[in-house]
Design a protein around this nucleic acid. Structure first.
Lengths: 332, 332
DNA sequence: CTGAAAGCGCTTACAG
DNA sequence: CTGAAAGCGCTTACAG
């Protein structure tokens, strides 16, 4: 029951470890067909499974990457993670999953762990002001790519982002064109960069038409519950509004729930618009109008970029920006 | 910029590698305070980060586990995965994520990969008749625990399951007590063991009251889309039904969508009941009545069990069965 | 066409 | 109280 190693194969096949290793690594141009066949035969007989840990130590390559994200339970992140894992697997890489709950402390712990495990790269979806973690990664020369949320001071590293400002602006224009004037905006948590960008898209567009009113702006978490709570609050505070722009779909879901319960008709009494286009948004009734990010593609590309950095390819585009697009559905 | 190793520390601190290793591994009862302090000081100065790959090779422990599941994008699995990762992280383990899309072939590839990477254990949510993969794991002496779906021939290994039969039976009894008679049942894919169990809970309960009618039974995938498609089908085929039992929540979501679109009032015209109690089920309108599994706990326990197997503890309960419970909400 | 030897960064009996 | 040496399972210049 002992694990079979390259030495066992070498011994039985009557060759050296070097030869066996060469064969398994396809550096076998100079090795006779006969020897090769013998080695493969013995390997099969013994059910040989190579030890990647030993290989990693010898080659300094682990074929593992880490993915650091706030919470895999959030459909936006699970879709990104799925895309990353698909692409990684396709390229022979494994993915180590790390949930941070937006805690900078947890991020740092995971970074240390991932470095210890000698990952070849890290995909990082920041939960806040994650500079310390990123510096750790950088100082250890680990390739990384930022996804979705960027971090001050790391604008010039690799990243995959969405034009949040433009996305929200487009949504607001659309609402205005539909005759809405009193548009509530629910911001995400202020520690996160994208919250700011999305808010500014709203503020500037409203200002353009002299309609901006600070009293219509609220802040909450990027969760269903966050959307519920904030909506419960503001529907008793402000007397009139004809549309609500939530900074992400999850919030919008929670908000819609509260609105329906409170007797609002959507979209007759109030229009609702979200951001992300997570899958569930088209399965609720009414279907959610939203600003769609190409979530799966963003995940996929983030791994592709990481891979080019790992492979030290030249002329890699450092920053990928996606333009989200408005998808009009039942809530507006 | 070269990586700093234990040898560097030893050299600078003027001690041997052995001593340094001892100190970092807390096998330091016999080492003088002075030496210890010196070593820690040097380690800090050099920003030493240990190399777990080397450690793994030496100790034959990787502190990584693999989690094999159909699709992380499915809220049921992402919640389980989250629980596992939380618990794993708490115990100093990392989690390698593997999406199989229910493909037995992908499962086997991942198993091989995980063995190569020397994982200490595997949590396996089977996508079908996964015997070959499980035998591979078993033959390589890797601890594993089955979650949610069990596999013929592996009943006596470690596992965390739900009493599917009883759960559905409870739901059906409840529908019958509410005066429903024509209860449609939507099965999951027949390759999956839990599909059968859930169906039998329905069939036997209906039979008990002489109400079982094969024409009311359909089969589809465990997805939103599966629920949509099957519902579109049967609402034109059967003329009268007063309740629908979907084998999971995702299907129910898709079904509800179609029903609402087709003008049915839920629950007035038709009651709907699901299975799982994924988070979203209480955020739709009307809220979904469902048979709740303790998803997070199941994930958590699966890792705990795995850990006891890894640590070769004695008297581990091999099989954990959870009794799901009916949660009555708006769709009934 | 193939092999001996050193090395990757750790741990761990064993010795003193 | 501490260290020299062997070993974990691979790879890889180098030599022949």
């Amino acid at each position: 029951m002992k694990k079979v190693t390259i030495s066992d194969i070498a011994k039985i096949a009557g060759v050296s470890k070097t030869t066996v290793s060469m064969v398994f690594n396809k550096k076998d141009e100079s090795i006779s067909e006969e020897t090769k066949e013998k080695i493969y035969k013995v390997a099969k007989e013994l059910n040989y499974i190579p030890n990647f840990v030993a290989k990693s130590l010898a080659t300094n390559k682990s074929f593992s990457v880490g993915i650091i994200l706030p919470d895999i339970t959030n459909p936006f992140f699970s879709e990104i993670a799925r895309a990353i894992e698909d692409e990684a697997n396709f390229s022979g890489y494994n993915v180590i999953l790390c949930n941070t709950d937006n805690s900078v402390k947890k991020e740092e712990e995971y970074v240390r762990l991932l470095i210890s495990k000698q990952v070849d790269g890290i995909i990082f979806i920041a939960g806040g002001e994650s500079k310390k973690s990123l510096n750790l990664i950088k100082d250890n020369n680990i390739p990384f790519v930022l996804v979705d949320r960027y971090i001050d001071g790391f604008e010039n590293f690799y990243g995959v982002f969405c034009r949040n400002y433009e996305g929200v602006a487009e949504g607001v224009e659309y609402l205005l064109n539909s005759g809405k004037r009193r548009i509530v905006f629910v911001k995400g948590p202020h520690e996160v960069e994208i919250s700011k960008q999305r808010f500014e898209g709203y503020r500037d567009t409203m200002n353009k038409y002299n309609l901006y009113n600070e009293d219509y702006v609220f802040e909450s978490d990027f969760t269903i519950d966050g959307g519920k709570r904030v909506t419960e609050e503001f529907i008793k505070d402000i007397d009139k509004f004809d549309a609500i722009f939530y900074s992400n779909d999850l919030m919008a879901l929670g908000g819609i729930k509260v609105l329906l319960r409170s007797g609002y008709n959507i979209p007759k009494d109030v229009s609702v618009i979200g951001f992300d286009n997570i899958k569930i948004s088209e399965f609720i009734e009414p279907e959610l109008t939203t600003i769609a990010q190409p979530i799966y593609d963003m995940g996929k590309d983030s791994f592709k970029i990481l891979l080019s950095v790992i492979n030290e390819e030249e002329d890699i585009d450092r920053l990928h920006y996606y333009t989200p697009k408005l998808i009009i559905r039942g809530t507006t």
